[in-house]
Design a binder for these strands. Sequence first.
DNA 1: TATCGATGCATCGATAAACGATGCCTCATA
DNA 2: TATGAGGCATCGTTTATCGATGCATCGATA
Lengths: 109, 109
Amino acid sequence: MPKSAEFLPGTLDMLILKTLTLGPNHGYGIAQHIRRTSQDALKIGEGSLYPALQRLLINEWAIADWRSSDTGRRVRMYRITASGKKQLKQEVESFDGLLAGIARVMDAV
Amino acid sequence: MPKSAEFLPGTLDMLILKTLTLGPNHGYGIAQHIRRTSQDALKIGEGSLYPALQRLLINEWAIADWRSSDTGRRVRMYRITASGKKQLKQEVESFDGLLAGIARVMDAV
DNA sequence: TATCGATGCATCGATAAACGATGCCTCATA
DNA sequence: TATGAGGCATCGTTTATCGATGCATCGATA
């Protein structure tokens, strides 16, 4: 597993993909959205964020293009693909399954 | 994170500690209990199980002693400690917090 | 005008958890 | 007597995450 379980490892891609279903977004914006929406329960560092975004691109679960303002400020906008939506659905199903399993163990008497 | 997310990384110690609150148990028995109770959702391999048990011992969240039958069959029985129960409580709280955060993100519209 | 904090990109090395494979032993049963 | 289940454990590999670092833009404020 991860270096330290700051938050649940393995769920990052899912969270990012979910965020992208709300509309195209850029890295920093995605991280902010996750942090705010989770009410600070999930703080994703940049050292986790950008590698995760690379994974999404490599697997073609998202595409990206650069937007630059006239002043030279550049932003990389990510957009979820159809394949990404399929992947998200699978990850949610798998996550829910694991969660149900964990719940059964944790509730056992 | 882990080599592959066969099940949610970071939850293994919690699951084992929880299992031990049901009574002393040995490695194989713990794994069986988790598998059965989770209805096969969680299958923990031996390459994950024994290192996890070592962690519990090192942190003194559990203690262990060998039981051998007259024939020479040996079993290592694990027992949760008071410190282990405290740790379990903390892990459950942290887990629930993360879960709530994830839920908020995944339910966002 | 200089500085500071937020925004924004990205990489690097370290860490550690989980995994599959492997090896060895006992025991019951087919 | 071979097989499969029960039982212990280790080894090497993989991989995700993390903190630190580096660089640049921008608005506000001191």
